[in-house]
Every structure is written in C-alpha cells, then in structure tokens.
Amino acid sequence: MPDTVLALRGLTKRFGQQVAVDGVSLDVPAGSMLGLLGPNGAGKTTTLSMATGLLRPDAGTAFIHGVDVWADPAAAKARMGVLPDGVRMFDRLTGAELLRYHGLLRGMPEADVVSRAGELLEALGLADARSTLVIDYSAGMRKKIGLACALIHAPRLLLLDEPFEAVDPVSGETIRQILRGFVASGGTVVLSSHVMELVESLCDRVAIIAAGRVLAAGTLDEVRQGQPLQRRFLDLVGTHALGTESLSWLRSS
C-alpha cells in the first residue's frame, strides 16, 4: 500500500439540529484519482470544506501527507490545491490578475507566477480572455480559471469540487488530460461529481457518500462489484420509487 496522501478521520459537522457530515473517514493513497459521489445534500462540499480548512469540524480532522489540517494549517494548506464550489472569486480581477493573486498569496516568486499563469491560460483556452474581468466569464470559464488557480503552485494533492460542471466537452477533455498527466506523475486527485460515466472513465477509486456517511469506498472495481457504477450507486443510496398514482395528472393532460 503506497503512502496515504489524504486521510479523513471521523469528520463531523452539525448545522443546528441537522447532521450534515457524520463521522466521515477516508484514505486516499498517493497517485490515485478518487471520485467522490453522492446525491444532492449528501455532505460532499461540507466534507471537502472541512478537509481544506474552510470549515471547522465539530469532531474529527483531516491529514495531508500526515500533517493535521486543523493543528498545523499552514503546512497542510501549502501541500494542496483546491477548487471550491459555491464560493465567490475575486471576480473584479482579470483572469491573469486572479492567477497572479493566487500565485503570490502562495508565496511563489514573481517570475514563476508570470510564466506559469501564461501557460495555464494557454492550456485551458483562456488566453483570449486574460484581460477580461472574471465576473464577465461564463460558468464554464469560471470553473477553468478556478482550476488554474488551484494548479498554479504545483501542489501534489488536488481537491476539486465539481470540476466539470458547466464545462464544454472540448475543455472537459483538456481538463481530463491535465488530471491524467498529473496522476501519472504521482499526483493525487479528489474530485466530486454527479456524472457516473465521467467518474467511471476517469477515476481509479470511488467513495460514495449519502446523508453524511461513507456508504462505500475503495477501488473502482471493489465498489462496483461487477455492476455498472450507476446501478451500484442507486442500490447503495436507495432509489425513490414513484407510486403508480403519483404525478398521474402529469400523464393525463
């Protein structure tokens, strides 16, 4: 078993009466790409927020390369690149300025920031939009610039919340190539998604979360157990069968 790059240990978060994340533990070994699956409201974003230092857990913690995120945040944060979801960006900066901002905040030398920012904008097809304010970007372009911001300091662990949402097929393929190359060189990726086919084709490990608990985790084949991932996911999470009478008015009109 190779080194564990990301280890979640009993992460728990309550919002008022509601338990959003309920004792999530998970290991992600080096050089793997893990797909985090779960229905809406399963606690994926909350889990990732607690693993990246954005949200203080009620209990449990996360380790990045053995460093406790909540005991030594500076060392842990230096090792990961994060694409958060549902969080604003400093979008009155242009794409180039936003990348420069992220690079400098990470303490990188200016020359590296400038050269890497240029390469990233080029690779993600944002070179034409480098002088446009991020606020004027489309949803897919915002995802791409967010991804570029997560990559600029060359972390060895990427935590990406819905990286393919609203991204067009061409850019999606670019992102896949970037991520595959990253993993092939020993990097580690955790990404959340709702698209089973994408996770099946891209990830070698899968974790399924529902109602704040891990229902299944392991390699793709361990989780699938010989079934398509879609089928297995529905079995685990439980489908919501419609009665014959429900929504009958919709069929009669």
Binding site: T52, G53, L54, A74, G86, V87, R88, D91, L105, R106
Partner: peptide
C-alpha cells in the same frame, strides 16, 4: 466586502 471570496486567503494559508 470580500464576501466568500475571502476563502482564497484561507485556502492559500495566508497568515
């Protein structure tokens, strides 16, 4: 004024 964009500072480990 930064609203949730402040998350960048937290994620980047800005002291």
């Amino acid at each position: 004024y930064d609203s949730s964009a402040l998350a960048v500072h937290v994620l980047a480990g800005v002291t």
